[in-house]
Amino acid sequence: MKSETMRLVERACANYGDGHCLILDRPCVYQNDTTNLRRCSYFEEAVLPENPTLEAKYHGARGQVDNKPRCEHCGDPFERKSNRQKYCVECAVEIRKQKQRKYNREYRTKRAL
């Protein structure tokens, strides 16, 4: 019996063919639904939003309440302003201050020599 996720992959995923992921040239990560550790970013971003109820169940099974990215510093979900953003706004300010302090320290020690 196929899972809902696998049926959606077979029907809507552009990278799926004959039981394999065409990009990675290996079996689809959702072929064996016994583990929740494997993830496919293409499926999560392009295919899964097509079915909101399945998307909620999918992320709920993985311990995520929502599909938002998480801050690398504090772990809280946040809205991205760009695709390279790694930190929430509050943490980004603090991380920038830390990096600037480190740079200034290194600059002063080089200048002292």
Results as ranks from 00 to 15, higher is better:
D76T: 04
N36E: 07
E10M: 13
D76P: 05
C13N: 07
L8W: 06
L8I: 14
R7S: 00
F78M: 09
V9I: 15
F43K: 11
G75C: 08
A14D: 09
A14S: 05
E55W: 06
I23C: 03
E4S: 14
V65M: 10
G19V: 04
D25Y: 12
Y87V: 12
I23G: 00
A14W: 09
K110C: 01
A14K: 14
L113N: 05
G17H: 01
Y42N: 04
S3A: 10
E90G: 03
Y42F: 15
I23E: 07
H59M: 05
C74W: 11
L24P: 02
L37V: 13
E10P: 09
K57T: 07
Q100M: 13
N51Y: 14
L37H: 12
R7Y: 02
K81T: 06
Y16E: 01
G60L: 10
D33A: 07
P52M: 10
D33M: 03
L54M: 15
T34I: 03
C21W: 02
H73V: 11
N51I: 04
G60R: 15
H59T: 04
K102E: 06
G63T: 13
V93N: 05
H20W: 13
H59D: 03
E94I: 14
T35H: 11
Y87K: 13
L113H: 02
C88T: 13
Q64G: 00
P69G: 09
V89H: 06
D66G: 06
L37Y: 15
L24Y: 15
N32S: 09
R101W: 13
T5D: 02
E90W: 11
R70W: 01
R111I: 12
Q85I: 00
P77H: 02
N104S: 13
H73I: 01
E45L: 12
E72G: 05
E94R: 14
N83M: 03
E79Q: 14
R108G: 02
L113M: 02
P69Q: 08
P69C: 04
Q64H: 11
Q31N: 10
E55R: 12
M1D: 12
R105L: 13
K2I: 11
N51A: 10
R96D: 12
R105S: 05
R105K: 07
R38V: 05
S82W: 12
N67L: 00
A92D: 13
A56Y: 02
E50Y: 09
R26W: 10
A61L: 05
R96E: 15
N104A: 08
R70E: 04
R7H: 02
C74L: 05
S82M: 09
E4K: 14
G17T: 03
R105Q: 12
A46D: 03
N36L: 14
C21S: 15
P27I: 01
L8S: 07
H20K: 03
N104W: 12
R111F: 10
F43A: 10
K99Y: 08
R105V: 06
C13A: 15
D66W: 01
L22C: 14
E79L: 06
T109D: 14
C13H: 08
C74T: 05
H20A: 08
N51M: 08
K81A: 02
E50C: 03
F43I: 04
A112G: 00
G63S: 12
G17L: 01
L22M: 11
D76F: 04
N32D: 14
R26P: 13
V29P: 08
Q31F: 08
V93F: 04
E10I: 01
